[in-house]
Structures are given as C-alpha cells and as structure tokens.
Design a protein around this nucleic acid. Structure first.
Lengths: 150, 150
DNA sequence: ATACGTGCAAACGCTTTGCACGTCC
DNA sequence: GGACGTGCAAAGCGTTTGCACGTAT
C-alpha cells in the first residue's frame, strides 16, 4: 500500500512549464486552465466569458489577469487562439492530436461547429511549402447560415 | 453624328445598386470603390489605409465615412472583408469568379500571400452540407513564418 | 527576501454614433 | 424640398499597461 499523503500534488505540466522559465504557479493561472480542462476541448471562450464564469464560481480574478494569463497559456501551448468571423478572439484547449481546426460558423447567431479535413491540412502545408513559409497552423473558417437562422 | 454630350456617364453597377435601394451616389463612395478597382484585386487594405491613400491624393473624406462606406460596399457585394491573423480587418475587391480566398500569413511581419485550392473549397461545401448550413464563403488561413523572418 | 504576479484604473486603438450641416435626387 | 450622406467630435468596446501591493518560491 502506498503512502497515504503526497504533499506535492503531482507536479503537472503547467507547474513544470512555468517553473522552467522562472514563472510562478498562482491560483489564478490554475483556475483559468482548470476551467478550460473542465469545460472540454471543443468550447470556444472569449476573455469575458472566462472572467464571468470564474466570477460566477466565486473566484476572485480580474479581467486584466485573464487577458495576461490567456496570452501566457497560448504562448505555452496549453490554449489555442481562434479568429472567428466576427472579429472576436476566442480561446480553446489545445487539442493535443493535431493543432489544426476547421470551423463552420453561422454569421447570424454565431453558432459554431467543428470538423476535420485532411485535404485542407494538406492544401495548407503545400501552399506554405510553395512560398517557402514555415507552417505553424492552418484553419479553415466556413461562413454560413445555420438551419435555425434560415 | 451622335449627340456630343451624354449627361449620364454610363450608369455603372454602383449607381444602379445604390439607386435601387433609394441610396445615393456620392463622390466619397465613388472614390472609395474606385480606389479598390484601381489598386487591383489582390490587395488587402485596412480602413486607415483607405483613408490615408485618399487623403494623400487630395480627396476629402473622413474616416467615419470610410468605415460606413466599407460596410456598405461589403453589404452590396463589391468588397469582401478579410479576417487575418492579427485581428485587423482588411478589405479587398470582390473577386467576381469565386468569392473564396485562401491566405498564407506570416505571423511575424504580416506578409500575406494568396492561393487557390479546390480541395479546400470542396471540404468547406461538404461540411456545410453535413451540418445543414447554407454556405456563404470559406476561407483558409495558414499561419506561418515567411522566409525573410526565419 | 525578492522577483514575479495581481488588481485597479487609466490609457489605448479601432470602430461606431449623435448631431448639425451639406448634397444628391 | 426633403431624405439621405457627410464631417466632426464624443462615446464605445475590447484589450493593454503603469503602478503599488501581495505572494510564491
């Protein structure tokens, strides 16, 4: 039988990544990443969404910290930033598998569906190669009108 | 010999579209659309770009009118709005042929190359169909680093 | 102990809007 | 003549930043 108590609650990737750069693990950073992990991989949240959700759950985080932490988590690779059609920036948990995502967006109500497509990924990679660019990621945004809004 | 003067200088699509809705053809609207037509189809301009170019050429147009007119021209289908990686909104002449465009964007310097890809268009159309959406347009944004910035 | 992070509020950049005046039909 | 469009300046919105205080290491 193992020891009953483990004073260090298993150093996760967040702690590890932060400490490597001399940065610190704060309750706010933990809360923000936890929120994305609990809410699941396919959800797109704005900075204000994150703030409201955390405040609603009695957490004490300022909007400024949300913005700073979201940028940090994107830089560290935990989150990905999305550029949807309305100009609003959204964030979602990095999908460890590919890193590329395609979105079908209703221009009326904002409803967004995700899908995958290998031909699209290949086309992006090929275009980058042709122009001598180093590929980071490719994202297809399909602007459309959803069944409810028609 | 025909009459020497033709008081209506050939009503173009802009005049026609405007008058249909009880809207008016103003010098500002003409200037803004002319700018895009002269500069060519592949160029992406921000609202400020348009303003600066017009002011530089001695035109008298306010930034507010630029914004109002850009939206109008997009609504009328003469221009298309682009959502590039940095969150900046850009506009370009509607390419009469397809209406879909794909961009390769350098995340460091903002250099943008355009390319075409039928598989991408097909993938977008197929996704829209699968979810029951009515397709408007699809755009692939490939985030990458250009040769100069590497 | 000390560098790093936070909250607050002000500043910021881009975009929109209220209003009085001007202009196209 | 009258509705529509413009310019100006102010407001709006999402985001960033300076600063003093707090806290993780």
């Amino acid at each position: 039988m193992p020891m009953a108590s483990s004073p260090v609650p298993v150093e996760g990737p967040l702690e590890h990544g932060l400490h490597q750069d001399g940065r610190r693990l704060t309750p706010q950073r933990r809360l923000i990443l936890d929120l994305f992990e609990q809410i699941g991989g396919g959800t797109h949240l704005s900075a204000e969404d994150v703030h409201r959700l955390l405040v609603d759950s009695k957490a004490r985080v300022s909007l400024a910290t949300i913005y700073r932490t979201l940028r940090l988590l994107v830089d560290m690779g935990f989150l990905q930033e999305l550029e949807l059609s309305d100009g609003g920036r959204r964030f979602e948990l990095s999908s460890g598998d590919h890193g590329d995502h395609h979105h079908l967006i209703c221009v009326r109500c904002g409803r967004t569906e995700e899908f995958e497509s290998n031909p699209v990924l290949e086309a992006g990679a090929e275009a980058a190669k042709r122009f001598g660019f180093e590929l980071i990621e490719s994202s297809l945004n399909v602007r459309a009108i959803c069944p409810n809004c028609r």
